[in-house]
Nucleic acid binder design. Sequence first.
DNA 1: TTCGGTGCAAATACTTTGCACCCTT
DNA 2: AAGGGTGCAAAGTATTTGCACCGAA
Lengths: 149, 149
Amino acid sequence: MTKDERLQWFEATLEQAGLRRTLPRRVLLRLLAASETPLSAQDIYEQTGSDINLVTIYRTLNELTRLELLIRTEFGEGFYRYEPAPGPSDTAHHHHLVCDSCGSIADFEGCMVEEMLTQTVLPNNFQVASHTLTLHGTCERCQTQPSSK
Amino acid sequence: MTKDERLQWFEATLEQAGLRRTLPRRVLLRLLAASETPLSAQDIYEQTGSDINLVTIYRTLNELTRLELLIRTEFGEGFYRYEPAPGPSDTAHHHHLVCDSCGSIADFEGCMVEEMLTQTVLPNNFQVASHTLTLHGTCERCQTQPSSK
DNA sequence: TTCGGTGCAAATACTTTGCACCCTT
DNA sequence: AAGGGTGCAAAGTATTTGCACCGAA
């Protein structure tokens, strides 16, 4: 999925939900799509130079998450981080590696949870819709020169 | 691991950490060990009939988590839940099924993430120490009679 | 023109901290 | 006796809500 396709999908989804194409929404989507790692509300606020009200950022993040344009995850820091959803033709979602030493968050592709579940018996016929997998450990940099960030 | 073995492990760990065996700590460990699902600080506060100060509960939960006697997890509710750690002879940890309809949280055994990782290439030689896996979806009850709790 | 959207101020929810007193070791 | 532990009050973060004004359709 290219950056353009992604933006078009965003716009289309907003439209068919009867939502307006406003500046804050576009800015947020652009920022999140360009980011290497999931961003917090505070991160976004700072990256916009405080031009968009923090309350608006929270409201927008909630709205876009409700529309499933964003994914919300908590990495043990005490607040949520957001990133763009994989998209409608979901085939390649990813998960995250969290370094417990420096706090860095990296993506990792090649999730095999789906395959794993075909070999697993779930209690009470639970119907799985999605899943979250986060690996904790130590990143390469922290393995040699501990701490910091 | 029997309930008695678990309690002994708790006491021993407290002792060798130089921590005192106090009423709040015992009560918390007992409550958590007896619970079917992970409990929040508020849950525990209510289950003790408000006998133990909420601040003490938070402090105790942090302390026991630091000692790795408890596992802390966020299930998308906006607060943390705690449950007893698998124990030193960790062989069978478990993960959770969260019903997005009623919010119920159930355990599920038979995690195969470890095996999965042997077949996965992680970026930058990331060294995995632990992982969190949560399945979201619909529980059996909610598949027939939606909503409520 | 019409609602939905935004900003500001204030409120909430969860969690942590400071300090004096208490109790396990 | 001594130092860690607890309770109470207050503070700190993260996030939400009420309301008047603004602006996209």
